[in-house]
């Protein structure tokens, strides 16, 4: 009997965001081209902070792009791992932007950006400790309550590990996602970069993540300095990252995927071609992929 099953296993409230397909970061240099050429792009990711302004061209173009494409918002300033108080002014500005844009979803990074009221404007690493799990998870819950929606948290590239870490990065992400009941933005390039920098196998990282929580994937290029890799988003995605992306899709099924380019930004057509490569890698991987899983949030 269905009722008995429910008693045995408390029901989960399924919150399934649509798989938006293949997207690009929305960049100022491409505004006119996007509106004029209607490129082969399924959706755009807008950097939240760029549109937390009072008016003018940025919001004008964002709204015009939004009228024609799904848009998601991606922030760099939430500082979800920061130990200062959550910045309510920032959260209010984000909520205002969310109300205006009606994005498919909202994301930021699993990091901290500053403390003692200062801001380094960088995505700084956290120690993988029980204390940090508890701290970050409780802040994600507060943010989700404030925004009245689940958020996606993205793994960052890192260049140091802390002596005090008590677990791996993937265990850290798993525990936070579970306790905060949030979704994940998996940056496959960041997994590759951090794997290189810290000597772990990126496949082990991918295998360990809760597939049903991965709502979006980022792909990007980076700069290899020999002894370490820096996550610069200024170059095409490299072959090893394409392979890791294919491996990821085989493991978790189709997921909304986009390419980030923040420097040395090429013509829109060049990025659209690179996005076609993502479609092709995903198409091949999907043939042998596990079935797509809806994102799950417990009630």
């Amino acid at each position: 009997m269905a009722g008995d099953e429910n008693l045995a296993c408390p029901p989960l409230q399924l919150m399934q965001f649509q798989n938006l397909g293949f997207g690009l970061g929305l960049r100022t240099a491409h505004y006119e081209d996007i509106l004029a050429s209607h490129p082969r792009v399924d959706w755009f990711e807008a950097l939240s902070e760029n549109y937390m302004v009072r008016g003018g061209k940025p919001l004008h173009y964002l709204e015009r792009v939004r009228a024609e494409y799904p848009v998601v918002l991606h922030g760099v300033s939430l500082s979800i791992g920061g130990t200062g108080p959550l910045d309510l002014e920032y959260l209010q500005a984000l909520r205002t932007l969310v109300d205006r844009v009606e994005p498919s979803w909202v994301s930021d990074h699993l990091c901290w950006t500053g403390t003692a009221r200062q801001n380094t404007h960088d995505l700084l690493p956290l120690p993988y400790t029980e204390e940090a799990v508890e701290h970050v998870a409780s802040r994600i819950l507060q943010v989700q309550d404030f925004l009245r929606r689940p958020i996606l948290i993205e793994n960052v590239s890192s260049y140091v590990n802390f002596n005090q870490s008590e677990m791996t990065e993937w265990e850290f992400i798993n525990q936070i996602a579970e306790r905060a009941d949030c979704l994940l933005l998996l940056d496959v390039n960041n997994v590759y970069v951090s794997g290189f920098n810290h000597g772990f196998d990126p496949h082990e990282f991918i295998d360990a993540l809760p597939a049903q929580r991965i709502q979006q994937i980022h792909l990007a290029g980076h700069s290899n300095c020999g002894t370490h890799i820096i996550d610069t988003h200024d170059a095409p995605v490299i072959d090893e990252v394409w392979k890791l992306y294919g491996y990821t899709i085989e493991a978790i099924g189709p997921v909304a995927t986009m390419i980030e380019r923040d420097d040395h930004i090429p013509e829109l057509a060049t990025l659209v071609s690179e996005l076609d490569q993502a479609r092709e890698v995903a198409r091949k991987a999907t043939r042998i992929a596990a079935p797509a899983q809806p994102a799950i949030r417990s009630a």
């Binding site: 130990t83 403390t115 003692a116 700084l124 120690p127 204390e131 701290h135 802390f162 005090q164």
Partner: peptide
């Protein structure tokens, strides 16, 4: 102050 706060202070 928590360990995390102290570490972030040193890092910054």
């Amino acid at each position: 102050m928590t360990f995390l706060a102290e570490l972030q202070g040193r890092f910054q």
